[in-house]
Amino acid sequence: MTTHELVVMGASWGGLAALGLVLSGLPRDFGAAIAVAQHRGVEPADAVLADALARKSALPVREVHDKDPIVPGWVHMAPSDYHLLVERGGTFALSTDPREQYSRPSIDVLFESAADAYASRVVGVILTGANPDGAAGLARIRRRGGFAVVQDPATADRAAMPEAAMARAGADEVVALSEIAPLLTRLCGRVPATEQARP
């Protein structure tokens, strides 16, 4: 039985290549919804980042609009210049609250809201980055019974973010970048294609 329904991922410096690699390793029938906060500059409204990652992934990659439902098997991207939050009703919310750790989207904001809404059913993943965003969020996920995965700093483009997360939150698994997709697939299981919601 699958206990993890939502994977939240945070990435900063070097994160796009890492995200591309993780997403390309996930199977088409991946069993959980994925929400991603990737630090980036302010961009036009078009889903440029989502489109770029969609080329790497067997899963649909979508930029989130406010109140979008959380769909299993989909990759939901935080849009440029918005915080992405997980709500209890199985939906996302976007916010323009001030930046956290100089960032919007903030990884902490996504992770903390996911911890509050999904508790033990969420997996948090911290990837490469050069700042400590996500450490507090990952700590909250662990406190509420969720599962914490940190990219092995030795395999990270920038080690500061994984190291900060490990220092503050600890981790249930610290794995090489290439091992993250297989680990997530084990944690979240696979869903028969007929039960998958397709775009």
């Binding site: 796009l16 290549a17 591309g20 440029v48 980042l49 489109d51 770029a52 990652l53 080329r55 790497k56």
Partner: peptide, 8 residues
């Protein structure tokens, strides 16, 4: 588009 493609 170019930047993301390059990073990927």
């Amino acid at each position: 588009v170019a930047k993301y493609a390059f990073e990927l």
